[in-house]
């Protein structure tokens, strides 16, 4: 039974600050009698329940850094990755699962990620799997357009995965100026050539305008290639839909080309 919900601002720093405060609260209020009474949630995305205390948390990056450090120390990198996967999941339940997962993780230690017979750990595993799957698919299906030498891409992921993709592209395109817009979370990752990437938040971008500016001849060549490579005798749209869900197609140039 959830009795306390800590509300954060939805950023990663906010989530980990809420975790920090949550554990402080757990120690002071519940001591030994704790029975999954605390959850964290984003203040933009939660449903209020009766008999539940809502506490708003002020984002504090020092607390967040301490939390992350502690998670890595206790659960190892693999455990941290799993916690991160849950933290970035879009669902309302993610905060509750994350907190319950960490409570168990701090007791069990590094082995926690394999303890799939625990229902909270299993749920955490499922949520983080979904997040990483989406991040992987986005990495495959994201399309950059050339804007006079600069690359720009727009994505609309469900989970907050932008930061998970950037190392990959920074490694791959070190000499390019690129920007990825996450239209769902209104953030962008910016990579100046031969420098590190960084995130920008609170963006209000006019995408139509950018699309107008993008003028890329290779889009046609790519479309031509994709259409030609298919073997007509083997046509199988079901298989195509399985591998490339239509949901992902909205920002892919070959599916969404301006005539």
């Amino acid at each position: 039974m959830i009795e306390y919900v800590l509300l954060h601002d939805g950023t990663l720093d906010g989530i980990f600050t809420a975790i920090y405060d949550g554990f402080a609260l757990k120690k002071s209020v519940y001591k030994d009698k704790y029975d999954d009474n605390i959850a964290v949630a984003s203040k933009n995305n939660y449903e209020a329940h009766l008999f539940c205390n809502y506490i708003e948390v002020a984002t504090d990056s020092t607390k967040a850094a301490k939390t992350v450090e502690y998670i890595v120390k206790k659960l190892g990198m693999a455990g941290y990755d799993m916690a991160m996967g849950v933290a970035c999941h879009f669902s309302e339940e993610a905060g509750e699962v994350l907190f319950a997962f960490l409570v168990r993780g701090f007791k069990v230690g590094k082995g926690i990620i394999n303890k799939l017979t625990d229902k909270w750990v299993m749920r955490a595993f499922e949520l983080s799997r979904k997040t990483y799957n989406e991040s992987h698919l986005m990495r495959e299906f994201i399309r950059f357009s050339d804007m006079r030498g600069r690359l720009y891409a727009k994505i609309e992921p469900k989970c907050n995965i932008l930061h998970m993709m950037c190392n990959h592209f920074a490694d791959r395109f070190p000499g390019e100026n690129w920007v990825i817009f996450d239209a769902t979370h209104k953030i962008a990752a910016v990579h100046p050539c031969y420098k590190g990437w960084f995130l920008m938040d609170d963006l209000d971008v006019d995408f139509d305008r950018i699309d107008e500016m993008a003028h890329d001849e290779y889009v046609d060549l790519w479309k031509l290639f994709v259409d030609t490579i298919a073997i007509e005798e083997r046509r199988n749209e079901k298989c195509q839909n399985n591998h490339l869900p239509k949901w992902y197609r909205k920002n892919m140039t070959e599916w969404n080309r301006r005539e």
Binding site: E140, P174, V226, A230, R234, R235, N236, E237, H243
Partner: peptide, 18 residues
């Protein structure tokens, strides 16, 4: 430019599902 991942990365799927 470039790197490679051992798992392989698919970038698109043609109308035959390949």
């Amino acid at each position: 430019m470039g790197n490679a991942a051992a798992c392989g990365i698919c970038h698109a799927f043609a109308a035959d599902g390949r």
